[in-house]
Design a protein around this nucleic acid. Sequence first.
DNA 1: TCAAAAGTGTTGGAAGTACACCCATGT
DNA 2: ACATGGGTGTACTTCCAACACTTTTGA
Lengths: 253, 253
Amino acid sequence: MPADAAAIGLAVSTVIFALRPDDHGASQVWIPLVRRIREPHLHRWALPGGMVRADESLEGAARRNLGETTRLEPTYLEQLYAFGDVDRSPDRRLVSIVYWALVRPDEAERVEPGENVRWFAADELPDLAFDHNRIVDYALWRLRTKMEYSRIARAFLGEQFTLAELREVHEAVLRRPLDPANFRRQMEASGDIVATDQVVTGGRHRPPRLYRYADDIPLVDAGPRTPNRPASQTPASDPDRTPSTTHRTDLQD
Amino acid sequence: MPADAAAIGLAVSTVIFALRPDDHGASQVWIPLVRRIREPHLHRWALPGGMVRADESLEGAARRNLGETTRLEPTYLEQLYAFGDVDRSPDRRLVSIVYWALVRPDEAERVEPGENVRWFAADELPDLAFDHNRIVDYALWRLRTKMEYSRIARAFLGEQFTLAELREVHEAVLRRPLDPANFRRQMEASGDIVATDQVVTGGRHRPPRLYRYADDIPLVDAGPRTPNRPASQTPASDPDRTPSTTHRTDLQD
DNA sequence: TCAAAAGTGTTGGAAGTACACCCATGT
DNA sequence: ACATGGGTGTACTTCCAACACTTTTGA
């Protein structure tokens, strides 16, 4: 029976979420998919993924596959679920450990769309390979649920952000408008964010203040009580997140 | 590299929770463990588990191993996490899909303690094999978290129960006393439970009313949006849950 | 001066917490 | 009668949703 066990293939896949404007300019959840270049499900769209090597961790395998297929290096990556139905792959027994990831708009630029890589609006997906539609549905449910009680919105934003930008993230994920006044107070009361002494000028209205996340608070609890890694510092600055006519300025007071 | 992938062993393990009275008669969380009878970690206590066969689902493998090692057939079984660190097993690469289960006291009787099977209080565990201490910690965190927003307490109880019994479940898991008055109202307001027309007589005080869970509501959302299985009917009745001097009687009114 | 978004104040309701108090039973 | 838990009433607080209102900018 160990012979049988060895016959089970172990793979990883990742559901990657990014926020991008839809036709009407409103932010929406998008997912990059890759086209399969071999059987089974040849030419069908699928989640990026691949087999796990014997000398790499599960999360490591997810990161490697992500880089190889989409060039993405997400700041947020968390295990979602292990899918292992006997008949989920038509040819051989395959168990997939699925991760979900969040990337900022500037990170998402690294994806080079083409014949075999494309962005899809999360709620308008085609028929995907394997059980990947079900997987995406679950990941979306998880994203929306976790948005309401954790600080994952941070993973969609740069170092500094206005409350309107933060609210837009929540609204895009939850697909419902939020009261700006109440949203502001909830965020401020949570202690998760702190005001900086900078504002954004250039808009045709009162300049909004910039905020940042309070340090010393971990991004989220990712997985089973991992000894809190030092809050992953954002790799780069955040260029061109706002129209070029706006400027972040020091506040004089 | 598919050769490498095939070299990874795929196993399942399960953290089983039951409530049993401690030395002072108060309910507490207990876990059955099995002693390892082969290397690595020979003679160490470990979670029940084993290799996944090619023709069985992950959950099926968990149930089979549970039955074989502890004779348990839990009513509640949910996937917890996939543990796959490269060095978590000293000899070969092993990925374990871990499940967690809840069993009622009468179900727990099926376990036959002996040289190689024993119950342990959840917060007084010895050094376990592999990374099983970490796994149990995570499962405990999950149990306690989920107790606060879901109906999993049901899995610890029989078909009918008093509010004191339901409260005792919550208190044992959360390790803190709850106000009986407020607890009652919260439960009643939730709509999850309905009063029956029976009471328990024999106590030296006012006879408490018996409640049952509202049907047509699933036990919990176990896993990724499984199309709601018909709320798993409790296999048997619930004998000897209360002292033999008490009786469940019809209410006359 | 006006439009637009930033930001503050106020109010009412829902839900949680603490705790006083009455009820029904066995001894 | 009285101890014991079952069960109800009530005041207080905290949180959230709704929405009126003021502030500050660019045009």
